[in-house]
């Protein structure tokens, strides 16, 4: 089960109302490489992991991503909270406003709602961990683009924190990948239907 801690992981700050920036930042809430996708991806992949290290890392990183989702939500909420209708129109957020007012919803920067097709759960642990390493890099790139777009130094500060976390998570997933390779004994020349590992002498022993 999960419990809630009544605090943010990072003291996220917003300098002033800025719906234009909110429109971009919201992609890390409900976009393809956002925190919701990251969290759900890891939490749903953990069931088919063969080694304890992988189950633990996916659970813990998936949980941390939920905390990041809350940080991004805090940024977006505070960026649009005090925006006037005129501000919202000027920022091009009127379409969003028509559907959601100033409520938080899982969309990308262009307003496309979140879909499960953003993530994958393939059942092959090596494949899944590669997916996660790629996901961390995609999120890192997104944060870099958001930092370029940001004209609020306080928001940039929080985006930088989240950017650094992607690097740490990538390192952990890389180590999990190494452990998986060891677990499989680096025997994976081919994995095919009808392939019987018992009949193949291991490569590295």
């Amino acid at each position: 089960m999960w419990v809630y801690q009544k605090m943010l992981q990072y003291p996220a700050r917003v300098r002033s109302t800025n719906p234009r920036l909110a429109k971009a930042v919201i992609t890390q809430y409900g976009g393809p490489d956002g925190e919701l996708a990251a969290s759900l991806r890891y939490l749903t992949q953990r069931y088919t992991m063969p080694i304890p290290e992988a189950k633990a890392a996916l659970t813990d990183i998936g949980t941390e991503e939920l905390a990041h989702m809350e940080i991004v939500a805090t940024l977006v909420y505070n960026l649009i909270r005090d925006a006037s209708i005129a501000d919202i129109k000027r920022a091009g957020l009127d379409g969003y406003y028509a559907d959601h007012d100033k409520a938080l919803y899982f969309v990308n920067a262009e307003g496309v709602p979140w879909v499960a097709a953003y993530i994958q759960s393939k059942g092959d642990p090596i494949t899944d961990i590669h997916e996660n390493m790629a996901a961390e890099q995609k999120a890192r790139s997104t944060y870099e683009y958001l930092i370029q777009l940001s004209d609020d130094p306080d928001v940039t500060d929080t985006l930088r924190f989240l950017w650094q976390r992607e690097i740490v998570h990538f390192q952990r997933f890389g180590e999990i990948l190494n452990l998986l390779h060891d677990y499989y004994g680096r025997e994976r020349v081919f994995h095919m239907k009808g392939w019987d590992p018992e009949k193949m002498p291991p490569v590295d022993r």
Binding site: Y10, I147, F161, W163, Q164, R165, I167, V168, Q171
Partner: peptide
């Protein structure tokens, strides 16, 4: 907390 990692070897610059 400010950098986003406890480990100096993982610190990167945007």
């Amino acid at each position: 907390l400010r950098t986003g990692t406890l480990f100096p070897e993982l610190v990167r610059t945007v």
